[in-house]
């Protein structure tokens, strides 16, 4: 029965299983899991992918133990503000970034191991009314924050020891930035979405705001997840957690939109929708890796889409042990992490 419950249900005709359960970890001390992620960790000359789990008050680092088993290495206790999310830092080793706060992010901290003091520690990177944050390659962190008067968009370059090496201010758009996404193929470009439903593009080297392009009125409150520069176009993966169901498409989970940055014009390239008969809506906070999207639905299932084909690929149904609450892609193409509020995390190979 258990193996049957863990087998993903495929709704796209006969094909090989696209999700295979690899391993499971259970944080018995976790009262309410808020996020899960992975981090590359190097110790004693060995570099491996480790799992990071977060509850409101603590963040734990897990190392792989053979076979298909995980052991907790260390837990950082962060008592003053609740943890809201883990902020993945792509291609970065031995650094975990977390956002803490009440309803909004109030501070961003780095969690790390210090060889100088032979101890695990954490350091403060930024405080403020932070609206959005993203980790980029080469240990860079971009965030938007608001005061009563103005919006600040800032990139911080992080040192290996958890300090901030350099700070670059980016020109803010008029409306509040709600999400950021790095651009594959252009290291110095960054895109964001705004509360006014626009996509904005920055030059990270100069801080210039290069373009603001409206997404359109059909899909409000767009959130950007990934972007790809190809053939003179900017392809942006958007989710629309507040979009209404339409007759033509149903409930849209993700869209790939092609923007021409020269003219600001755009066309929708692909829709990824909840299939008919799949109950529930997407819970905000889906995750995209390469060209695959994952999201938790209000039914407690995790759904996976091939975003370039617009195909619903697999679903992890909620089991008797409880609803899925978290869905995150593991680093290095290691698969999909699905988590429950009780601290259970399953790693699936995709």
């Amino acid at each position: 029965d258990v193996s049957e419950q863990l087998t993903p249900v495929l709704l796209d005709g006969p094909r090989e299983e696209s999700l295979q359960l690899v391993s499971e970890l259970q944080d018995s001390s976790c009262s309410c899991a808020v996020d899960v992620s992975t981090v590359w960790w190097e110790a004693a000359g060995c570099r491996e992918l480790r799992v990071v789990t977060a509850s409101e008050s603590a963040v734990s680092l897990w190392e792989p133990l053979a076979p298909a088993c995980w052991g907790k290495v260390y837990t950082w206790h962060l008592g003053e503000m609740p943890v809201i999310q883990i902020v993945p830092l792509p291609d970065t080793c031995n650094l975990v970034c977390v956002a803490l706060g009440e309803l909004e992010i109030g501070e961003i901290r780095l969690l790390l191991y210090s060889s100088e003091t032979d101890s695990f520690k954490h350091s403060l990177v930024k405080t403020g009314n932070i609206k959005a944050v993203v980790g980029l390659k080469d240990r860079r962190l971009v965030s938007s924050s608001r005061t009563m008067q103005e919006q600040q968009v800032e990139m911080v370059s992080l040192s290996e020891t958890g300090g901030s090496k350099d700070r670059q201010t980016l020109m803010p758009p008029e409306d509040t930035v709600t999400a950021f996404a790095e651009v594959e193929g252009l290291r110095e470009a960054l895109v964001g979405t705004t509360a006014g439903n626009s996509v904005v593009v920055w030059n990270l080297k100069t801080g210039q705001l290069l373009r603001k392009m409206h997404v359109g009125y059909s899909y409000p409150a767009s959130i950007c997840h990934r972007a790809y520069s190809d053939s003179g176009l900017l392809f942006v993966v958007l989710s629309h957690p507040l979009a209404k169901e339409s007759e033509s498409c149903g409930s849209p989970a993700f869209r790939v939109v092609a923007f021409n940055p020269c003219t600001g014009r755009s066309v929708g390239v692909m829709f990824s929708c909840l299939p008919p008969g799949c109950a529930g809506r997407q819970v905000p906070g889906g995750d995209v890796w390469d060209a695959v999207g994952a999201a938790v639905l209000t039914s407690g299932a995790v759904a996976v889409w091939d975003l370039l084909r617009g195909q619903f690929v697999a679903v992890l149904p909620p089991g008797p042990a409880g609803h899925w609450a978290l869905a995150r892609w593991a680093g290095g193409g290691a698969g999909l992490l699905a988590g429950r509020r009780d601290g259970t995390v399953h790693l699936y190979r995709y």
Binding site: A189, N203, Q208, L210, G232, A258, N260, C262, V267
Partner: peptide, 23 residues
């Protein structure tokens, strides 16, 4: 996509916009 939908496309859009945009 075609130029009728999106207008003239430039492979060097990032460099061109960086030259045109205010510093």
């Amino acid at each position: 996509c075609s130029e009728s939908d999106l207008g003239p496309i430039s492979l060097n859009w990032f460099e061109e916009l960086s030259t045109e945009a205010p510093p």
